[in-house]
Design a binder for these strands. Structure first.
Lengths: 211, 211
DNA sequence: ACCTGAACACCGTTCAAGT
DNA sequence: ACCTGAACACCGTTCAAGT
């Protein structure tokens, strides 16, 4: 494991008897910053507390346990992902090209925020334990895809006869799979990432496009 | 975290001064059994040693560290996956139906060995640190898919004009994505798993099939 | 060569006590 | 209400010592 470049010495706050700010928010931000810098396994309740100048058990006032903290981080990830997808769809003109832009935005989000993305999936968060809000937000991101496909079906771009959610699940599996393979470094040959994404969308388009 | 059903009390071996069997093999088996029963996070060098009636540091005679142990477990997973894929392809008759059977075998393997599958991907193993053999074996599983697609292209079933490895990567991303979504419990509605797999292969077939 | 126990530097979480 | 330090039951890994 690579030594962390971030140390408790660089704490943003001077030690004060009470934090008395939005500690919950600060804990979330610090956790996410650690995840981005060194990955999930580097997230430590003690270290995050130390960075904020707070005791190692202060977190338990705002989260049930470490899993709940990570679950909240994952929840925010799905929110950001949904916004990225909706932006791509709307700015792309809500048509055939916009759909492709959405796919590129999805893979782009996963690559640009790979550690965060891994927390959202990856299984470091038990969806049964800390489920409700996480599931809702994940469903929200999925819904952005469903809405786009429904519009494309309406316009005769995509197969009208198919169930929209089934089609959306198919598309989701493809982009999720690509994102994971890229993040895990399984697509290491130079230039293969771009080629794969382009190929995937061409073949997907033929697969689900209207005849 | 659920309490483990497996305890050190149920050690297979009585305590002896020296293990003097194939300890490496025993460590691997015990690690995999623990992964199957309680997931990766339950794997503990101390506990596995205790189960085998061996000291907690005995492992270091056969593996550089915990990561190397998990990497070896992942390597064996790719070997088993490759065999499952090849079996499905050959027993299915090396044609269109066999390709579908391969896909079902892939998703089936991931679902039946979900914890193991997560170790193979999931990022708990750093591919750069313990890479060589793991990468080779993962490539072997991928190659089974490449070989099948090459045959289907030759027979005019799949698009001849496409690069086979690019096509294989596309298919891999799709089945990997489905497998991950299923394992993570994102496809929770009843019956949606089978429907998704069936739909995915129909649409994939249209996407990459010869005109 | 292979294995051992003691020791080190860590964890997450609980809890009685402080303000 | 919110936060604290001490304590508990764990980790992975190192290392001098044993056979």
């Amino acid at each position: 494991m690579p030594p962390s470049k971030r140390s408790a010495r660089t704490a943003r706050k001077a030690r004060r008897p009470y934090h008395h700010g939005n500690l919950r928010r600060a804990l979330l931000d610090e956790a996410l910053a650690t995840i981005r810098a060194d990955g999930v396994e580097a997230v430590t309740i003690r270290e995050i507390g130390a960075r904020l100048g707070v005791s190692r058990t202060a977190l338990y006032r705002h989260f049930a346990d470490k899993g709940a903290l990570l679950s909240a981080v994952a929840t925010e990830g799905f929110r950001a992902l949904r916004e990225a997808l909706i932006s791509a769809w709307e700015e792309g003109g809500r048509g055939d090209e916009a759909f492709r832009a959405m796919g590129v935005a999805y893979v782009g989000f996963a690559v640009a925020n790979s550690s965060h993305y891994r927390v959202m999936f990856g299984g470091s968060v038990d969806p049964r334990a800390h489920g409700a809000e996480l599931a809702t937000e994940a469903e929200g991101a999925f819904q952005a895809l469903v809405d786009a496909l429904a519009a494309l079906q309406r316009d005769g771009v995509m197969r009208r006869e198919d169930d929209t959610r089934l089609m959306a699940t198919h598309v989701w599996a493809l982009v999720h799979g690509m994102a994971m393979l890229i993040i895990d470094g399984k697509l290491h040959e130079s230039g293969v990432v771009d080629a794969t994404v382009r190929y995937a969308f061409d073949r997907l388009r033929t697969g689900i496009g209207a005849a």
